[in-house]
Amino acid sequence: MLLDLADSYVEQNRKLNKALSLLQGRTVINLFFESSTRTRTSFELAGKRLGADVINMSVSTSSIKKGETLIDTAMTLNAMHTDVLVVRHSDSGAVKLLSEKVNCAVMNAGDGSHEHPTQALLDALTIRRRKGRLQGLTVAICGDVLHSRVARSNILLLHTMGARVRVIGPPTLLPSAIDRFGVEVFHDMRRGLADCDIVMMLRLQTERMQGRFVPSVREYFHFFGLDREKLAAARDDALVMHPGPMNRGVEIDSELADDLDRSAIREQVEMGVAVRMACIDLLTRELVGNAP
C-alpha cells in the first residue's frame, strides 16, 4: 500500500510542477544529530512537495552542544506543535527514546547501527519497479553489515516481502548471531553472489576501521569490492544497488557504479523522495483525527 502510494508520487515528482498542498499548514522538522546530506535533502524535498513547512535543524546549530539533553530538545520542539519530527541520531534506540516523549509523529531517519526504515522502503520500491516483484527474488547484501542500519532494515523488510536474503562479508564485519536473522551467510563474494537477482553494496565505514576490522582498503576491494568479474557470478540481469554515499574503488568499482544498465543507484535516490512523501502523507493522515 505504501509502495503503491510512493509509486504515484514518482510520477508526480517527474512533472514540471511538483507541488501539492496536502500538508498545507503542517510543520515538519528534520532533526539531525548526525550529519547527512542526501537523507536530509530527500526528507526536505518530500515535505515541501507535499506543501508542508519544513525546518532543518542540525546538531551544530542546536542547543545539544550547550548541554541540553536529547529529551529536552524533543520536548521543546513538541511544545511548538510540530506535526512530524524526522530524526537521525548516532545512537541506536535514540529515536525510539525520543518518540516516547513527544506526541507528534516521529520518523526514523537512521539511528546508530539499528535501523534506517525509509532507506529499506526506497530500496524495495526500486527493486519492485525494476523487477516487477519482491517475492522470490534472491538479494545479496554485501560488506559492512556490522555497522549498517541499512542492512538491518533491509533484512527485515525484504524478508517480510518474501525475498531470500544473503549477507556477504568477512566475519569481522558481520554482527554476532547474524545467522539467527534468517539470512544465508557467505564469506566469499563469488559463492555468495551466485544466482542473485539483486546485489546490494554497503558503504565501508572507513572512518571506523583503523585497521581493526579489515587490514587495508586494497585487500578489502580485492576480496569484497564489487567489480564486473565478481558480478559475473550473479544472474545476467542482476541489479546493483548502493545506499550511498559510495566509496568508489573501495566497495564498488567506479565504472560499474555508473553503468545505468546494471546499476540502480541513481534511481534509488529518486525513489527516496517519493517513498518519504508517502510516509509523511500516511503518518499525517493518522494525525488528522487527534490533532490537539
Binding site: P175, S176, R180
Partner: peptide
C-alpha cells in the same frame, strides 16, 4: 553480545 544486541544495533 548476541542476536538481541545485533538486532538492536548495540555493541556487545
Amino acid at each position: 553480545s548476541g542476536e538481541i544486541a545485533s538486532r538492536l544495533g548495540l555493541s556487545g
